[in-house]
Nucleic acid binder design. Structure first.
Lengths: 218, 218
DNA sequence: TAGATTGTTAATCGATTAACAATC
DNA sequence: TAGATTGTTAATCGATTAACAATC
């Protein structure tokens, strides 16, 4: 479908943000928007917005700007949200449960088809219409149900062993909430990390940097 | 305590990762490491590692490398993890609950002192030794308990109104899980965003980009 | 001392911003 | 047509990498 080579990571990271803002404008009934107006709202420069969008095509019209609706749809398409990648969730603890319940996978190009845990107390419980299965059944399940993506919501120590099993099954795309760097161990995989601890520490740095006395304590 | 001006965002984002890897080395009993060895493990260049660390001081020793333990401690200190910033959590739904239970706030420079929700069914339930309080009591609580940070685990639509109340109370540091851009509306605040939807969409893009047929469908 | 590895400066690379001609 | 705003090229800025002298 697409295949845009050589798009830089900073550009890709901004796409969901464009999508979000355009969605809000759409909800408000705004029909057209110029890069200048979008710039004011989003805090990027107008130049950057035009530069970013032109990586994928000329979606605007000189003298007019961009149609909010068509740009929203274009970006959704660029992101690949019209897919239905089959995803399984590993780990039905607090975090896994929150991810399962909280996310609108269908709107983001995915479909959650299975949840696994190794804790007998959790196996059989139902989350979002899906019955939690025993991790032992992973291989059997994946043989019967082609799976594109695995979501890791397991402790750091369990991650590598499960990743090895999934890799053997040919599942090489991961959404990783585990405090562990999967990316280091294989190089033909796609990993999107959500390292909450890292995020919290960055916040800590920024607060400390803003608040602390400049070298007066010593 | 610290106050390192002009440290670029890319450097700051790498700090937690250094901290994590050094912690693992420490656990394994490794005493010293060179920028070269660390480079192999982490996937940054040795040059970048030395450059990054030298933003904050000369922690190494020529001909030897870095002491794992002292570098670990230094980075923890740079990040400000020896603080105890008082944090409150807004929203005790699935996500809020997962964040409250899952995170080791104490190890990351924070202390969770309160949880709020506006759902009567949730008020009074206990999460991590903290009884969920009614959101109406926010002002009173913060007057009695000086609070540094608010964690947003509420729906997009509720975020702005609550942010306004917190801002009035002088709370200007936010860890934001809400699908909403707080940063746009005030400019003297510190926001660290965890946009899970954005992360999921970036994964979708990357899978699509790797898998789709190159322009053959048309 | 000789070898190793840092700290730091200089070179390169890439991303952002500015400018403007094309054009709706 | 005239005005507005894009698409795109060129200029600037910043971050990464390479190189090497300092030094443990």
């Amino acid at each position: 479908m697409h295949k845009y080579e050589n798009i830089s990571a900073p550009v890709i990271k901004r796409l969901p943000r464009y999508y979000r803002f355009l969605g809000e404008l759409l909800d408000k009934g705004v029909m057209r928007i110029s890069s200048r107006e979008l710039s004011d709202k989003m805090g990027f420069t107008a130049s950057q917005i035009r530069q970013d969008l032109n990586c994928f095509g000329g979606f605007g019209q000189q003298g007019y700007g961009y149609s909010v609706e068509s740009l929203y749809n274009e970006i959704g398409h660029i992101l690949g949200l019209d897919h239905k990648y089959k995803a399984i969730l590993i780990g039905a603890g607090n975090l896994g449960k929150a991810v399962a319940v909280h996310m609108s996978f269908e709107k983001r190009g995915f479909q959650l088809i299975g949840i696994f845990d190794n804790d007998p107390a959790k196996v059989g419980t139902v989350i979002r219409d899906i019955s939690v299965a025993d991790l032992d059944g992973l291989e059997e399940f994946c043989a019967e149900n082609p799976t594109d993506v695995a979501i890791f919501c397991v402790p750091k120590t369990a991650t590598q062993a499960i990743a090895d099993r999934l890799y053997k099954l040919g599942i090489k795309n991961y959404w990783n909430f585990s405090h562990y760097d999967l990316s280091i161990h294989y190089d033909d995989i796609i990993v999107e990390n959500v390292h909450l601890n890292d995020s919290l520490m960055i916040l800590c740095y920024r607060i400390s940097d803003a608040n602390d006395e400049p070298e007066s304590t010593k």
